[in-house]
Simulated assay, not measured.
Amino acid sequence: MCSVDWFLQHCTLFDQASPKQQSPKPSDLPTTGDINGPYSLKLQDDAKRGNLSTAKAYIRAYWQTGMPYTDIQFWLFYAYNGPATIHVNLLLADTITATADRTLMPAGEHYGDWECCVLRIDNFTKQLIGVCLLQHGVGEYFNEQQLSRFQRVNGQHIVVYPSLNGHALYSGVGRNYTAHGKKDYVVAGVEWMVRNDTADGGQTLDCSSNHEIISMSWLGEQDFPSPKWVSYPCRWGPKDIPQSDVPLGHIEAIINDLGFSGVPGPIKSKIADAIRDQIKQQFRVDLNGPPGPPWNSQGKTWKGQYQ
């Protein structure tokens, strides 16, 4: 993670293909355009790792008339999103007989990654009654009875875990599989899923001490002005890097790791082709950065829509 200010200090703002400003301040960012241009940000290569010492949670409080609760959205920013890891199972009679795991570098990588954790607070009791964790644009909601799944710090603050490389948020440690797919051929088949690994023992960010309130939905800009970067509608990264397929070597390594022991020859060929086709369809190399919280694919989260 890192702060927006630190990220911008290591960027150049581009207008179309031309450098416009080096190390722009938030107030320098344009407020016109969209994901397709004309502006974009190019990060220095040595800044991809971010800088946790500068990181903070950017908080938007969301409430509308009649809502008995208020949602406190914690937006977390990463300078760079790492590659995806795929897990593949070879099946015989629906039983797993072989597995393969492969990091599909550079598939899944992109610049300027935004993630979100939402705390739902009862307006009358002021108690936490729900949590929503964003995972690749999809929300996992925990109601009041499910909050025991979270570890607590000082008996109050919940602990959440960002996944390796991808930063999707989870309530505990594990592989946290998503994007499941399956293909069957008579007695044999194959299934695949994305791994979102989380673990204990790493670095932490205390959002109760490191945060900035940037928006309150019931107050206009005149009453509570947001930082200028909130109104920047273009990419937090480059915009014109061509998409490409996952390197073929990754796919062939997965096929070799599975071995296909016990699978009839004609079916083996079909399964191998299915793996190639599905990886090409579901995984693309797209290094271009997404737009910010109000504008990107998670923009519905900004507006209080989490499912």
Rank of each mutant, 00 (worst) to 15 (best):
I254N: 01
A168L: 01
K303P: 09
Q16P: 12
T65I: 12
P30S: 13
K56I: 00
F74Y: 05
N89M: 09
P242N: 10
S231P: 11
G299S: 12
M193T: 05
C116K: 09
G108K: 04
A199T: 02
S217H: 09
A253E: 11
R152Q: 02
S226C: 07
L248N: 03
Q298R: 10
A17G: 06
T178Y: 02
G262K: 13
R195Q: 15
V160C: 11
Q145L: 07
Q281D: 02
R49T: 13
G304Y: 03
A179Y: 03
C132P: 01
R49N: 03
Y185F: 15
Q146I: 14
Q44C: 15
A47G: 07
Y185R: 08
I241F: 12
G82D: 02
Y58D: 00
W63Y: 00
G299T: 03
Q9M: 08
G189V: 13
I86E: 02
Q222Y: 10
Y69A: 07
G155K: 07
W229K: 10
W218N: 07
A79L: 13
A188D: 11
Q146V: 02
W229S: 11
L287D: 01
T125P: 06
T204S: 04
T125H: 08
I267D: 15
S244Y: 14
V138I: 15
Y177M: 12
E252A: 13
K42L: 03
Q145Y: 11
Y62C: 04
K268C: 07
A272S: 03
S226V: 04
T70A: 08
T85E: 08
S23W: 14
P242A: 08
P227F: 11
L29A: 12
E144D: 12
S27H: 05
V190I: 04
W302N: 03
D200I: 01
R102M: 04
E191D: 06
I86G: 01
A168Y: 00
T12Q: 14
Y80F: 11
Q16H: 08
L248S: 14
I267G: 04
K239W: 09
G155T: 07
D71T: 11
V173Y: 09
A55E: 01
W75N: 01
G201L: 11
R102A: 15
S40I: 14
W229T: 13
G130Y: 02
S27C: 10
G82M: 02
E109Y: 08
E109A: 09
P19L: 15
D34A: 09
Q146C: 04
L8W: 03
S148Q: 06
H87T: 05
Y111K: 12
D34F: 12
A93H: 05
W63A: 00
G265M: 12
Q278N: 02
I96V: 14
I254G: 00
G304S: 13
L92P: 01
T95Y: 06
N51Y: 01
N81W: 14
A107T: 15
Q127G: 10
G265S: 03
G139W: 08
